[in-house]
Amino acid sequence: MQEAVNAIVALMILANFLLLGTGSLRAAIRIVAIQGLALGLLPLLVHEKGLTLRLAIIAVLVILLKGIIIPRVLMKGLRELNTGRGITYYVGPVASLLIGILVMGSSLWWGYLLPLPDQPGYRLAIPMVFFTIISGLFLIVTRRQALMQIIGYLVLENGIYAFGVFFAQSESMLIEIGILLDVFVGVFIMGVMVFHISREFDSIEAGQLSTLKDWFRERRKSTETESPS
């Protein structure tokens, strides 16, 4: 069991590095799907008490939603968008990977400092959670496309969910299903919005979304000069 858990933790860390380094939207969706699958297997392996029906249902739901359905929806959306398949960046892949290594290193350091004596077996778990959460936030901020912001959000959520699996078993399945449902509907609505963005701007660059500012008069002027009518 221990080895299997460690293997999955390592897989999730690897997925983060791959996401930071990839230049293709298609690959990014695939990687986040793999991370979702790995996350789904986690609850089955972490619990010493053995497999209960409740754990099995949760695992199946996570695998279905995060490993299959959400990536499918994103992939289908990507196919319908008539834009490039490459990721555009504010911070490029090489720099992202270097930052990723730094974050992973400091996560290992923090992980050893934190007082979490209850689960001595999973020393890598806390660094993985930190690294995944920070990778998610980093992807949201440094990738230009709206689609990559959804993927960043998913990675962030995966990290938080992994923390829940290791250290915070909630008392009820109902709540876990509620959380999953919220995430799914959230990603779905964001996907619909990306579709609207691509129709409105002929691109899925979130950088296009920068009209709303506080100095109204200046905004007025700039739109007037762009399109005199």
Partner: peptide, 12 residues
């Protein structure tokens, strides 16, 4: 496009 921008920011 303005409300789209506002909605996207709100959601994310």
């Amino acid at each position: 496009h303005r409300s789209l921008e506002a909605t996207w920011k709100y959601l994310v």
